[in-house]
Amino acid sequence: RNRTTFTSYQLEELEKVFQKTHYPDVYAREQLAMRTDLTEARVQVWFQNRRAKWRK
């Protein structure tokens, strides 16, 4: 699989949710996936990576 390149809009939306919660539930991830036109799996992985970056 190729690396996903996120648009500025997608990143904005993802970051907005990340500010509210670092662990969005499956419903929140589904909503976000629909809004950003990404798969729920991509959203889930983005949050995993974002949490790792945040911990550093």
Rank of each mutant, 00 (worst) to 15 (best):
R1T: 15
R1N: 15
R1F: 06
R1E: 14
N2E: 15
N2H: 10
R3Y: 12
T4A: 06
T5L: 08
F6W: 10
T7I: 03
S8Y: 07
S8W: 05
S8G: 12
Y9A: 12
Y9H: 14
Q10W: 01
Q10H: 03
Q10L: 02
Q10S: 02
Q10D: 03
L11M: 09
L11I: 07
L11S: 08
L11W: 05
E12F: 01
E12I: 03
E12K: 09
E12W: 04
E12V: 03
E12H: 13
E12P: 01
E13F: 03
E13S: 05
E13A: 09
E13D: 03
E13V: 05
E13C: 05
L14A: 02
E15C: 02
K16N: 05
K16M: 08
K16T: 09
K16H: 06
K16F: 11
V17S: 11
V17E: 09
V17M: 12
F18L: 03
F18W: 09
F18G: 00
Q19E: 13
Q19F: 10
K20H: 09
K20L: 10
K20M: 12
K20A: 08
T21Y: 09
T21S: 11
T21N: 14
T21F: 13
T21D: 11
H22M: 15
H22D: 04
H22W: 09
H22F: 03
H22N: 03
Y23F: 06
Y23E: 07
Y23W: 08
Y23D: 10
Y23A: 05
P24D: 02
P24V: 04
D25V: 03
D25F: 00
D25G: 07
V26K: 05
V26S: 13
V26P: 08
Y27E: 14
Y27K: 15
A28G: 04
A28Y: 13
A28I: 06
R29D: 00
R29W: 02
R29V: 14
R29Y: 04
E30A: 06
E30W: 13
E30I: 04
Q31K: 12
Q31M: 09
Q31V: 08
L32A: 03
L32M: 02
A33Y: 04
A33C: 09
A33H: 03
M34N: 08
M34Y: 04
M34P: 00
R35F: 00
T36M: 04
T36P: 00
T36L: 13
T36Q: 03
D37F: 13
D37A: 11
D37R: 14
D37C: 09
L38W: 03
L38P: 01
L38T: 05
L38C: 05
L38G: 02
T39A: 07
T39F: 03
T39Q: 05
T39P: 05
T39R: 03
E40M: 14
E40D: 14
A41M: 13
A41R: 07
A41V: 09
A41C: 06
A41Y: 09
A41L: 11
R42V: 14
R42N: 03
R42Q: 15
R42Y: 06
V43H: 05
Q44T: 12
V45S: 13
V45H: 13
V45M: 10
V45N: 13
W46T: 00
W46Q: 00
W46G: 01
F47S: 02
Q48W: 06
Q48G: 10
Q48M: 14
N49S: 12
N49V: 08
N49I: 05
R50L: 00
R50D: 02
R50P: 00
R51H: 01
R51C: 04
R51Q: 09
R51L: 05
R51P: 04
A52Y: 06
A52I: 15
A52V: 11
K53H: 14
K53S: 12
K53A: 12
K53D: 15
W54V: 08
W54I: 14
R55H: 12
R55N: 14
R55S: 12
K56S: 13
K56Q: 14
